[in-house]
């Protein structure tokens, strides 16, 4: 039954979900900058540049998010934000060579499953911009 639902998901919905996740990824770039910022000398030029970078990323995220919530139920779009946990974990492993515990991996898997379940909801997006 779930497989049939998956088939029923329109291409535009999948496209919108991918776009939404790209915006969540932009949001998580902040965590990378914040991590680098902690290594900068406080109140140095580098320090201010990192914080300016954070403000810029947040600004881009806010502008894009506003466009995306036209296309989704707010509750569905917001649930998709939880995937930030996956992307942030990915950056910490790939960029900062940190390791994840089994518990953390289990948590991430649950969040991914939960997000997929929410997205399988029929008619949770408007397909087009505006409603």
């Amino acid at each position: 039954m779930e497989q049939r639902r998956l088939k029923d998901m329109s291409r535009s919905k999948i496209f919108n979900i991918i776009l939404l996740q790209m915006i969540v990824i932009i949001y998580t770039i902040n965590s990378i900058i914040a991590k680098f910022a902690t290594k900068a000398e406080p109140l140095s030029l580098e320090f201010f540049l990192f914080y300016a970078g954070e403000v810029c990323v947040l600004g881009v995220y806010a502008i894009c998010w506003q466009q995306m919530i036209k296309r989704f139920d707010l509750s569905v779009a917001y649930a998709n934000r939880s995937m930030a946990i996956l992307w942030t974990a990915l950056w910490s492993v790939l960029i900062f060579k940190e390791s994840l515990s089994i518990k953390q991996m289990a948590g991430i898997i649950l969040v991914v499953i939960g997000t997929v379940v929410v997205n399988l909801q029929p008619g949770s997006d408007t397909g087009e911009g505006g409603r």
């Binding site: 139920d73 518990k103 499953i113 939960g114 379940v117 909801q121």
Partner: peptide, 25 residues
């Protein structure tokens, strides 16, 4: 505010997400 319904998928999905965040943290 918008009369967005609490569907089965939304409720179950959000519970799983919350469980995931709890397990992670």
């Amino acid at each position: 505010f918008f009369k967005e319904r609490f569907t089965r998928n939304k409720v179950i999905g959000i519970i799983i997400i919350l469980a995931g965040i709890a397990v992670y943290n």
